[in-house]
């Protein structure tokens, strides 16, 4: 389940008004989420939650559900 907070950060960063983000949604399905904006999204998530990912952790992430899990694991 993707939290509202994470959805808001992503949509805000990609300047999208609304877009349905599910666990299985991948970056290339979301308008504007290319490899360059990907960095901005990751930085925005890190800033908002005040957490830090390792490079390898982010490379392993395949969809938004996994990103949520990664964020949750950092918050624990």
């Amino acid at each position: 389940m993707v939290s509202e907070r994470l959805q808001k950060i992503i949509l805000n960063e990609l300047k999208l008004d609304s877009f349905d983000l599910h666990d299985e949604t991948t970056a290339n399905q979301v308008p504007g989420w290319d490899s360059f904006n990907h960095i901005n999204v990751i930085l925005a998530v890190e800033k908002d939650y005040n957490i830090r990912f390792k490079g390898l952790e982010i490379l392993k992430v395949k969809n938004i559900g996994e990103l949520q899990k990664l964020v949750d694991s950092k918050l624990q």
């Binding site: 490899s35 360059f36 960095i39 901005n40 990751i42 930085l43 490079g55 982010i58 490379l59």
Partner: peptide, 16 residues
């Protein structure tokens, strides 16, 4: 590219 970009991410667009 992606791993490099990720490790330079604090430099934002210059990192990319």
């Amino acid at each position: 590219f992606k791993p490099l970009q990720m490790s330079f991410r604090r430099m934002r667009i210059y990192g990319s």
